[in-house]
Design a protein around this nucleic acid. Structure first.
Lengths: 208, 208
DNA sequence: ATTTAATTTGACTGAATGGTCAAAAGATTT
DNA sequence: AAATCTTTTGACCATTCAGTCAAATTAAAT
């Protein structure tokens, strides 16, 4: 079972690239930290760029597990968004503790860096974004059905806006290396953007 | 007048770093495209990182000229936001034509890439963001005074949200290499976020 | 037990990296 | 015209980069 070597490389790459950046991290550095020789690296990945692609798959796989639960149709649609915000913030806190820096969204950071450099990464990320917005879209439809937001809401557009909003806040948190703002304002801002009136918000804390 | 050499380097660096990324562009590449020898580069900049800092100053200087006009207190506060969106989109279109790729916000892209790598860049960008949100904040206060948005609006928080929202949309446009979404939805989304009712929006196009 | 296939190793390559430096050339000042 | 200061040049450096490869090791199949 030597998928161990491969996943060691992927997990190490996620850490290093997420904290620094794709171009700032070398193959040698990844290998050294993963305690894998370079020859093994190129046995599993044809190039550094392919490693990057697989790290994104790995991230998305992890996210999917949580989002499938958070955005379960059995949940109240308002709660789904609240829980997502909780998850995002908790994850950022965890990574801050582990890596010593606010890191933001690994996929957006990587995507922004490589957008013009590698077209295949651009299309890959576009696909991942589509998956994420699908969660938002379906929750928005349920909000419409529940009469919490207007029936005239363009849910596809609104879902993309939610995504961009969160990405933007995470980028700012990364640049400022500070989670304070999103801890205090991300949820409220999101509900403003969606157009959920205050009375529909739960003041009690929810757990994932 | 040899500031010519220096500004040639800065302008070339803006182009290359904006389109690709800081770490993807080498000093040699910048020198070659600017037609400046490497020795001259290090005569004007003590390091590559210092060049990056000066490119941000240069970007901010350019933005300030436009924003001082767009956010002039003589303007209707709703118009200010509309004009800003026009400016952002026009600039993106121009850069797309020039550089062949949607490039997003140069400062956010660079900031996201170097946040954990170089602390001085992080603080520099935090300063620039403060300047930008000052424009939004003052326009928001004028919206409050005009009774267009609620007097209970936390303008400082809302300004940061606006900033994050735009940054997020630009990142997505960069990743997708497509301006379609922001052309169609950025203004509407921004007004949703601010909480401006439809009747306050001008349907007519404005010019900067 | 032997063949076959998958994995690991470590030394290697050539190009590119950020940065240096002394000397030449050009301006400015005296 | 001589001296001083600024700018430009191009050769140079040590290091790092992504990627290669043949041989050694280990595991699986026969």
């Amino acid at each position: 079972m030597s998928t161990d070597t491969k996943s060691k490389l992927i997990n190490t790459a996620i850490e290093l690239i997420w904290r620094d950046s794709y171009n700032a991290v070398s193959v040698d550095e990844i290998c050294k930290k993963a305690d894998v020789k370079k020859g093994s690296f190129y046995h599993y990945f044809p190039s550094k760029a392919h490693l990057a692609l697989e790290t994104m798959d790995s991230c998305m796989q992890e996210i999917k597990i949580h989002y499938d639960d958070i955005f379960s149709p059995t949940r109240d649609p308002v709660d789904r968004f609240s829980l997502m915000i909780c998850y995002v913030i908790d994850q950022q806190k965890k990574i801050l503790k582990e890596l010593g820096h606010v890191c933001g969204c690994p996929i957006a950071t990587l995507g922004s860096e490589l957008a013009a450099q590698d077209a295949t990464i651009g299309t890959k990320i576009t696909g991942i974004c589509k998956k994420k917005t699908a969660y938002y879209e379906s929750a928005l439809r349920d909000l419409v059905a529940a009469g919490i937001i207007g029936a005239d809401t363009n849910v596809a557009v609104k879902a993309d806006e939610i995504f961009a909003f969160i990405i933007g806040q995470l980028i700012m948190a990364r640049i400022n290396n500070d989670l304070g703002f999103i801890e205090h304002n991300l949820e409220r801002g999101l509900f403003d953007l969606i157009g959920i009136k205050k009375q529909n918000r739960k003041s009690e804390k929810l757990t994932v």
